[in-house]
Every structure is written in structure tokens, then in C-alpha cells.
Amino acid sequence: MIWSRHNILSPSVSVDTLTLWLLRGAAGAAMGVVLLILLFLAIESWPALRHISIERFLTDPSWNPGENLYNLAPMLSGTLYAAAGALLLATPLGIASALFIAYYASPHAASIYRRLVELLAGIPSVVYGFWGLTTLVPLINQLHPPGASLLAGILVLTLMILPTIALTAYAALLAVPGEYMLGATALGLSRWGTIRGVALPAAKTGIAAGVILAAGRAIGETMALLMVTGNVVQNASSLFEPIRTLAANIALEMPYAMNDHRAALFVSGLALMLLVMLLWSIAARLARNGNG
């Protein structure tokens, strides 16, 4: 036996305990990273939170850090509009993609299509942004100037979150028990009848969890939106108006922000993180209940 060459026949308890503590230390460090992130966001936001009351971030007349005006509301609305629009488009497309892979395509086509969706998920956000900037924005500009707009942001974001929705919905559909499908067939349901009456209801919590995860991604997305939405701080009243999102605002102003301005940016970062954590907790709860 190869195994006897190593000194492993005498299990030494001390080595095992040492390994265990080493592993525990590493895991603790991994856990510490999250706490460290929260801690540093809180420390850096503290000056702003101390000088500026919370409601001023929503009620100040404008976002003008040079004159001590910190209204985040237009950026918040921009973020939510872009995320909501993208979800509205990506959810039906993503679920349809999942249904295509699970029930409609031949096994060969399904595996090719799934791979394509996975590759779509791997394209960097800066490339999506660059493509949007050089292709979509000029197209939209012909339709309705200026081109760099909420609509461009929504379209690019749709492509970016579609894989998340499609892949989680597919996983949820795969988890539907086989007996359900057999039962539906035995009842003589048509393919669409089976999907609508059996598969989708059985998979709905998993699909909902995927949509919420995608919402989190949409809210936190920075580069692609920064490149295509025009970055004007305003409440958009139409799809063709430029907007600025919270994340884009951080990326744009961090390089020159000082003191309270910098702290206000950290406040918006903290808000983003808490928002995404909230969404993620809801998704995790849904997924757990779905499995249980």
C-alpha cells in the first residue's frame, strides 16, 4: 500500500487539533471581512451622520456638496427606476429562457443555450457599458436625443441580470419533483398546461428568490450604468432622460470628494449595502422555505 509510506498510521491528536484551530482561524478571518467592511463604512460615514440629519439626505433642495446640500433622493429614484425597469424586462425573458432549457429545447440545444447564458453572465460590466455606450446610445439618440438615458441603462441592465434570473429559475424548475410532472401527464395536461398549472407554481419560491437576487445586483451595478445613463442628477420624467444612480454617483465623485462630501458618499455606500443585504435576506428566506 502506498499509504503506509507516510507517517499516518499513528494518528496524532495534537496535529488534528492544530489543524482544526488553523481552519477555525481562517474561517473566522473570512467572517471578519464582512464585519470589517461594515465597520469601515460606518466609521467613514460617521462625520456626515453627525453633522447632517438623516432626513436631510431626502429633503435638501439639491445634491450640491460644495454648498453643503446633500439630497440623495434623485439618485435613489434613478437607481430604483433603472432596477425596476430592468427587472420588468428581464423577469419574463429569464423565466422564458429557463422554460426553454427545461422543457422546450432538445437536450443538445438546451446545453448550448445554457452555456450561452452562463457566458453572458461572465461578460464584465465594463464591456456591457462600453457596448451600450458605442452601440445602444447612438441608436437611442436617433430615436430621441440625447441617447444616454434611463432607457439605455434599463436595456444594458436587463442583459446583465437576465442570466441570474434564468439560471436560478432553471435550478428551481429542476427541483420540481418528477412525480408532479408524471401526474400532470397522466391527467392529460398539455405541455403549457403542465408548465402553468404544475411546474411554475411548484417552482415559484425559487424563481422569486432568483428575481430578488437579480434586483440586488441591479441596485449595486456601477460601471455599466455609469457609462450609459448620462449621469445627470435629476428625477427622470421619461425614459429618454438621463439619470444618475447611487453607485455611479460614488464612482464619479470619490476621486475628488473631501470631508463631509466623502462621508456623504460613504453614507450612500452604506445605504446600498444595507439595501442589498435586506434583499438578500428575503431571497435566502424564500429559498429556505421553498426547500423545507
Binding site: V34, L41, L213, G220
Partner: peptide, 28 residues
């Protein structure tokens, strides 16, 4: 409980937007 806490914090870490990592990296 320890395993659960580690797993929970890793899942939170996976959800953090990259711009927030940028802010943290800059500050820390």
C-alpha cells in the same frame, strides 16, 4: 452555530456590490 455564522457572512459578502468593496478598500 460557528459554521452557520461563517456561511451567513460569506453569503452576505457575495451580495455586497463591487462599488462598496471599492469604498471599503479605499478606506481600509
Amino acid at each position: 452555530r460557528f459554521g452557520g455564522a461563517v456561511r451567513y457572512s460569506l453569503q452576505v459578502l457575495a451580495a455586497v456590490p463591487s462599488i462598496v468593496f471599492g469604498l471599503f478598500g479605499n478606506a481600509f
